[in-house]
Design a protein around this nucleic acid. Structure first.
Length: 193
DNA sequence: CAAGAGATCATCT
DNA sequence: GATGATCTCTTGA
């Protein structure tokens, strides 16, 4: 069943953990794609220097200051998109970055979009999964409780979780070492180990 | 297999 | 004018 807004209003760290083992669903004219979420990162509020919202309320970060359950999609390095889901109450400006998926449905479509065959390389990273799921800026600010992109709970038991520091945030001072990256232990579709 | 560089642009200073 | 919540390709052992 589709996850509702109240789920996204919980504390960000809890959501980042609980999203593991859930399923990201993307409906598109070319077909449906589904991936099991195997890796996430938490960006916790305006004080977290790794969080884009820590540099204040701007046109780009505005969406994070709004209500939970909406997407924050941004363009990075002039090449890739990254998908986040906004969490917690208005003005707390937090989000969970979806970092890796295990391909489940629409695998041929993902291969075509990624121009690659290897399953392990289809969605094992934030930029890769956006390419495989055709996620770009047109989906920024979309409602994940009512739309073409949402998360499904298929009733699987909570997986074993491994927590590590976040990736690519060396600039974040004392915040860079927080163990706020979560992965399913032993899963082969995560971005790194 | 590991390390390094380049891609390429929206966003903020 | 600098830089980034990344990825792929090339080089060399």
């Amino acid at each position: 069943m589709k996850i509702s807004r109240t789920f996204y209003e919980q504390p960000t760290l809890a959501i980042a953990r609980e999203l593991l083992g859930k399923y990201l669903v993307r409906k598109h004219p070319d077909g449906k794609t589904v991936g099991r979420i195997v890796e996430t990162e938490a960006y916790v509020g305006p004080k977290d220097l790794a969080c884009h919202a820590s540099r204040g309320r701007t046109a780009r970060t505005e969406i994070m200051f709004g209500p939970a359950g909406f997407t924050y999609v941004y363009f990075i390095y002039g090449v890739y998109y990254c998908l986040n889901i906004v969490t917690e109450e208005v003005d707390h400006a937090s989000a969970v970055l979806i970092r890796a998926l295990e391909p489940v449905e629409g695998i041929e479509l993902m291969k075509k979009r990624r121009r690659i065959e290897e399953l392990r390389n289809l969605a094992s990273g934030p930029g890769k999964l956006c390419q495989a799921f055709a996620i770009d800026k047109s989906l920024n600010g979309a409602d994940v409780c009512a739309g073409v992109l949402y998360v499904e709970d298929r009733g699987e038991p909570a997986p074993k979780i491994l927590a590590t520091p976040r990736i690519g945030v060396d600039y974040a001072g004392k915040w860079k070492d927080k163990p706020w990256r979560f992965l399913i232990r032993g899963n082969e579709y995560v971005s790194k180990t």
